[in-house]
Design a protein around this nucleic acid. Structure first.
Lengths: 204, 204
DNA sequence: TAAAGATATGGACCGTGGGTCCGTTTTGCA
DNA sequence: TGCAAAACGGACCCACGGTCCATATCTTTA
């Protein structure tokens, strides 16, 4: 996808190979923890040194993978049609945003889990992608009149779509995808509901 | 506290020593990850073998510590006066429950972080203490008329008090304790607010 | 109180996995 | 075609969780 203008082409080729191999491994293996860096390197037909030079460390690899997968959604959010794009009324957009995030975690469970779990000391809250989503969500929340604490609210809403929770509910919990989406939607609706006056502007 | 009827008294003494040492270490050191099992053993004046026999593994030690600290709150919830005890009206009790949890994480940040982080493959959602809190919260939510999806709602509310989030907000975020409590309280209030209608439409 | 059996001890030891190092190979440029 | 610069790869390092077992300590019983 992104070429990084690193002059040499073998570097680029290897980077892609690693990305592809890692992607495959993470979706095949049951748990993220039993995909080792050595595994990835071997599967990509590359030495560990190469792998680590390209991505820095385990977290770096995960991050790269994650962002690559998340990128389409990111674009849809920034410059896309409703309900994700910027032309959507705030309430609906928040709903759509969180729904998209939920679906993403449902589809890329293992990977998201690996990333959030690979915290390795530093919380997942310092990650760039988290900051981006939080910032966006907060901005949208701020456009809803009468809704205070948008910063905290954004955090709390995002927390409801954390990978391990989603995995737990969909996996062991056995809650079907659509049911989960409904539940999240209705939770979000409650949070966004206008306090005193009963009206539900759900126009589109 | 709990003696475990393991006949021999040196075992009991050592167990306590380890608990105390670990407790001290986790609150002193910056990050939970740089408290190794060897450290704990050394600080307790005990061999690693002893440590592992007493607690099984790292997660076991963390769990034991966590439960010991959480126990007073647990008792206050089960058989205590309002606002935590069972005599409290549901809405207020939910609020109090989450507030207590938040305060607990604020006070025992490092430890909670260590526990939730020590997932090591299995999500924190399988832990006994999580199930207990979730079960309790769900039960209380169910007493609130017109509030659907109490299972999911309980999860989502608990997610708002996750240790790493709390740590992030209070630590790097620099949000003062009382402000955080207010924000959580107002978030909870929103979720529990009696809607204009018993439940919102879930369009898709 | 002494001996025997049961139980606990502790630290040497092991396997694993992330991350580094550096001699060798590939690439790009002139 | 020659020569740096850049990248390669896998041997190597080390920290850490966890195990093992010869030894020490407790408890029971006679």
């Amino acid at each position: 996808m992104s070429e990084r203008q690193s002059s040499r082409k073998d570097a680029i080729r290897n980077r892609e190979a690693v990305l592809a191999a890692a992607d495959a491994l993470f979706s095949r293996r049951a748990s993220p923890e039993d995909v080792t860096m050595a595994d990835v390197a071997a599967a990509a037909g590359v030495g560990k040194g190469t792998l680590f030079r390209a991505f820095g460390d385990r977290a770096g690899l995960l991050r790269a993978l994650y962002e690559a997968r998340l990128e389409p959604i990111g674009r849809a959010v920034e410059t896309g049609p409703p309900p994700l794009g910027p032309a959507t009324p705030p309430r609906d957009r928040v709903r759509a945003l969180l729904d998209a995030l939920l679906c993403f975690k449902l589809d890329n469970g293992r990977l998201a889990l690996a990333l959030e779990g690979s915290a390795g000391g530093s919380s997942p809250y310092r990650a760039d992608h988290y900051e981006r989503w939080h910032g966006l969500l907060r901005a949208v929340l701020e456009q809803i009149p009468g809704l205070a604490d948008s910063d905290f609210t954004a955090h709390a809403l995002l927390a409801a779509t954390r990978a391990d929770l989603v995995e737990h509910l969909a996996g062991e919990g056995g809650i079907p995808r659509e049911r989960l989406r409904e539940q999240l939607a209705s939770f979000v609706a409650k949070v966004l509901a206008p306090g005193p006056r009963p009206d539900g502007p759900v126009e589109e």
